[in-house]
Simulated assay, not measured.
Amino acid sequence: MGARTKARKRALDLLFEAEQRSVNAVALLDERVAAPVTPAPLPEYTGVLVRGVVHHWVAINDALTTYSKDWPLDRMPAVDRNLLRIGAYELLFNDDVPDKVAIAESVALATELSTDESPKFVNGLLNRLAEVKSTLV
């Protein structure tokens, strides 16, 4: 597993936990950086992702809601919802990551961590965002 893949997984863990505990994800990130709960420190890119998702929270959620066709965010599995936020951040706001890589990484994590239907859903929604990217940013 590559360094950025690990960072994405850790970012997903933090976003998921923050949502479940109803705490701010950046505050949770800062807490984990100050007092790690695992032997391995958080990758720097994990912080980039969490801070980026939170910074662009409204725009990301609006884009996902607009293009998810009959699937409001609150009805999506929590893992999918947060994976989509990471993927949307990378697609729309992080020019260092090629669109195809952002989509493939999100689909791979959905395959590993979510339902059987999740990879197809994540792939379809992120591909749609990539198609309309120029109108969103």
Rank of each mutant, 00 (worst) to 15 (best):
A18T: 07
Y67K: 00
L136S: 05
K100I: 11
L84V: 08
K100Q: 12
G52V: 09
S118A: 15
V37L: 13
V50K: 06
V23Q: 14
L92D: 05
I86H: 09
R21T: 13
L91S: 06
D96F: 07
L136F: 11
E105H: 11
V53S: 10
T5I: 07
Y89M: 01
A130Y: 05
P119N: 05
L109C: 05
F16N: 08
T135E: 14
A59T: 09
P72S: 04
N123M: 04
P43Y: 12
E105N: 04
H55F: 08
S106K: 02
E105I: 00
R8M: 11
L126Y: 04
E90L: 13
G2C: 05
T111H: 06
Y89G: 01
E112G: 03
V137F: 02
S68C: 09
H55S: 12
V33D: 00
I103T: 03
S114R: 02
A130Q: 04
V101I: 14
L92R: 06
L129Q: 07
I60H: 06
N24I: 01
K133F: 01
Y89R: 08
V23M: 09
A78R: 12
T66V: 10
V37E: 15
P98F: 06
V53T: 12
F16S: 07
P119F: 08
S106T: 08
A110C: 06
V137P: 03
L91Q: 05
L15I: 12
N127M: 10
A7I: 03
V101A: 12
H55P: 00
T111G: 11
F16L: 15
L29W: 13
P98T: 04
A27H: 05
T115G: 01
